[in-house]
Design a protein around this nucleic acid. Structure first.
Length: 459
RNA sequence: UCCCCAGUAGCUCAGUCGGUAGAGCAGGUGGCUGUUAACCACCUUGUCCGUGGUUCGAGUCCGCGCUGGGGAGCCA
């Protein structure tokens, strides 16, 4: 039966008979023979098919265009020419699905912008083949990492009624008639909606994740999240995947330890188990990528208080575009400077001013900072954000009051602090940003199979 | 949402000072006994994003619109 090309090459034996199927990347013909570069998506290089002119349908084969689907029966032989170790001497080539000259993908470089417009075909290209193989394997590696450490994988809800985190605009979920919804006091009456209240797509599974960590000790979520923000940048999508571990009986330092292990594990994994893709990215997408990832995999991550970071930035003598002052958030230029110039590697910035961080973060004894952390890495800046959560009910309620966050809709969250509350901490990581970081790809739209961004939901 | 930049052949792009567009690739035909995004020869392909204006004349200058990209804000 059909063998996948990567599998065939892994266990290659001279003279081995086999059957392959895949898509044509290029055909080179001469009078006596044709060379077909065939790819089935299982690896980057594909395999070279050698077709002799004695094949019954040689004339058809010689006219094959890029993109056609073929079934090939033949024998694996050591290639007499340089360029590949093995090739397949074809005994039979079946044209399963032809591709005419209008096939939009050509055997040459295309712009990413153009490839985005043919997102249904771009996975057949080298770059996107490599990106989506890496993405798939990374997803598996993330599960493996947490599974090895005994973390419970929890599926937090995608439809939610809690809109309270303020983590960006919510997509509404409703079955009300948009043209003429039932009204109460001139406003749509969501009491008559499907769920009997306003609902939307989740912006984060963290709050529900915390509840599970207070039962299973160590948990993680890994699922889609949605933001209806009209942000049009290379780093934002309306639909993206997020990883959010949460540990009970853990503080900010434990949280940073986990994040450090996690990032190093994934760097190591990409280098070791996706080496063909990583070498491709290093050569064609970002020169020096391998070196950059290797450095991170082996580094001891630095740790620095926010106050200290501000001090270092102010004394740097560098003139930044944005002001540096205690109480202001760090901009990307500051984050990169700290990571690249001050530390020379990944660094956690700890204990941020409470005014610029979320309500659920644990207040420190100094009464002006919270136990928050950001992991900054060279080239991109922030890659992970996390915190120790406020486990003390009175302080949490006080903080919600200060920020005007309604306690009623979050009664269940507050309940978790009422009975058996304990210190706990976690972090969040955007999966696409991880894929970007490890591949060197610079646009989030090029690491999601079918990206959703403002005004774009095709495919 | 704001600020910049771009839009020319199926694709990647060039187009000088305003004078009605041309390279490579793709496609076609022929050649080639081992090619590597093969090579060699010949051939085909245009609503120059749309719209209004300036001008004897606009791909080129100006206004508006659409689309794409980059940056910012927001964030993951």
């Amino acid at each position: 039966m059909r063998t996948r090309i990567s599998e065939l090459l892994t266990h290659a034996k001279s003279g081995q008979g086999c059957e392959l199927a895949g898509w044509v990347r290029s055909v080179r013909t001469s009078k006596e023979m044709a060379f077909i570069s065939l790819n089935d998506g299982s690896n980057l290089a594909g395999i070279q098919i050698v077709a002799d002119h004695k094949l019954a349908n040689f004339a058809d084969i010689a006219r094959l265009g890029t993109g056609a689907a073929l079934g090939v029966t033949g024998r694996l032989v050591e290639s007499p020419a340089s360029g590949q170790a093995w090739e397949l001497a074809a005994e039979e080539i079946r044209i399963i699905g032809a591709a005419d000259e209008n096939y939009p993908l050509q055997k040459k470089r295309h712009s990413f912008e153009y490839l985005r417009s043919i997102a249904h075909l771009r996975p057949r290209s080298n770059t996107f083949g490599a990106v989506f193989r890496l993405r798939s394997r990374l997803a598996q590696a993330i599960h493996r990492f947490f599974n090895e450490r005994g973390f419970l994988y929890v599926h937090t809800p995608i439809i939610t009624a809690s809109d309270c985190e303020g983590a960006g605009e919510l997509f509404r979920v409703t079955t009300l008639d948009a043209a003429s919804p039932p009204l109460v006091e001139g406003q749509p009456d969501f009491g008559q909606d499907f769920f009997g209240q306003r609902t939307g797509l989740t912006v984060s599974g963290q709050l529900e994740g915390e509840l599970f960590s207070l039962a299973f000790s160590d948990i993680y979520t890994f699922g889609p999240t949605f933001r209806a923000e009209n942000s049009n940048t290379a780093r934002h999508a309306s639909e993206f995947w997020m990883i959010e571990p949460e540990m009970a009986f853990a503080d900010l330092s434990d949280d940073a330890d986990l994040a450090e292990q996690f990032v190093k594990y994934l760097c190591r994994f990409a280098l070791d188990e996706c080496s063909e893709e990583m070498a491709f990215f290093d050569k064609h997408i970002e020169n020096g990528l391998l070196e950059r990832i290797r450095t991170v995999a082996e580094a001891d991550f630095g740790r620095m208080d926010y106050s200290n970071a501000i001090d270092r930035l102010q004394r740097s003598g560098v003139s930044f575009a944005f002001p540096v002052e205690w109480g202001l958030d760090l901009q990307t230029e500051h984050e990169r400077y700290l990571s690249e110039q001050v530390v020379g590697g990944p660094v956690f910035i700890l204990n941020y001013p409470k005014a610029i961080k979320a309500f659920y973060m644990r207040q420190n004894a100094d009464n002006r900072t919270v136990a928050a952390m950001d992991l900054l890495v060279p080239k991109v800046g922030e890659i992970i954000g996390g915190s120790q959560r406020e486990e003390r009910l009175e302080l949490l309620e006080l903080r919600m009051d200060e920020l005007g966050i309604g306690k009623e809709p979050l009664w269940w969250y507050l309940d978790s602090r009422r009975w058996g509350s304990c210190p706990h901490a976690g972090f969040g990581l955007g999966f696409e940003r991880l894929v970007m970081y490890l591949s060197g790809m610079e646009n989030i739209r090029d690491v999601i199979p079918f990206p959703r961004t403002p005004r774009h939901a095709e495919f």
